[in-house]
Design a protein around this nucleic acid. Structure first.
Lengths: 152, 152
DNA sequence: AAAATTAAAGTCAATTAAAGTCAAACAGGA
DNA sequence: TCCTGTTTGACTTTAATTGACTTTAATTTT
């Protein structure tokens, strides 16, 4: 079995036993798994992405940690579906449609929708050239939707 | 738990019980916390800065003391002030400090702070190169704060 | 009153402890 | 073979801790 899979399994079992929230030190975990620390980073960035329903927080320095939180997957919601359906790129108009729709259907509060619209507005993204904005917008919105889902 | 956090918590509880104004001796506090005195200085300089809404006064020599006062202004003014004070560029750590502080002071709800953090996380901005992210982050956060202000 | 002593807080650089980044090397399957 | 995903390690950045040394203020002594 691949090291990646062992690490994934270990984290999954941690999430299981800790009710959806695993916190650990990268170096320690690497030690117990018998791999190099950056392997842990690799596993997280490839298997615990927001698309896959995980929120990852971390901190460097003394007392640093990595925390992975699972967003409820047993009740897959519209937001999750949406996150998955948003591709690599999303133009402003489509984003607007999505947000209006979510607000209309009360999946998001008006305030949340407003904030999200502000975050991905052309004005907010002005420092990035046009041709990169849609990709960026997709990334931001996906993260926002995941956060909205997990924060409640 | 980190020593830093214990000290922060202690000072926060002091501020709480003393209605926003904590006064103590550095050496005494270090003694009760079981740390070295300069640790107290470190905590203060990293967690109780003016940007974070605290006024710190102190006096050396015999009968010396450190006094920390929480200063608060009304939310809209504060938000606009903040927007103006954020320059062209903002690194992730500073953004985190700003958001945590706004949440702590109830200027923003925890949920709003969470959403904003998600919008400007490195993960959300992954599609643009590192060296452009801080500029972008500043733009997004400013728009978010203005939106939060006008939406309220 | 001046000087010496003592009791504080301030500063700063070194050390330690973590996570992040990135590119090169590698492995296995289409 | 070639492509994709994996593994590794060197290097970077960030955060916390510590202690030696400096500065300032009050108190005591001469």
């Amino acid at each position: 079995m691949r090291m990646t899979d062992s690490v994934v399994n270990y984290i999954l079992s941690l999430l299981e036993s800790e009710h959806g929230c695993a916190e650990f030190r990268r170096n320690e975990l690497a030690e117990t798994m018998g791999c190099v620390p950056s392997q842990i980073s690799y596993v997280i960035s490839s298997r615990f992405t927001p698309e896959q329903g995980y929120l990852v927080e971390s901190r460097r320095g003394g007392g640093g940690y990595i925390r992975i939180t699972r967003i409820q997957r047993d009740a897959p919601t519209l937001l999750m579906h949406l996150v998955n359906s948003i591709g690599e790129s999303l133009d402003g108009a489509s984003a607007g449609v999505i947000l209006r729709n979510l607000a209309e259907r009360k999946v998001l509060s008006l305030r949340d929708a407003h904030l999200m619209a502000a975050a991905i507005s052309d004005r907010a993204l002005a420092s990035v050239p046009q041709e990169q904005r849609d990709t960026l917008r997709a990334g931001i919105l996906k993260n926002l939707l995941m956060a909205a889902y997990s924060a409640t």
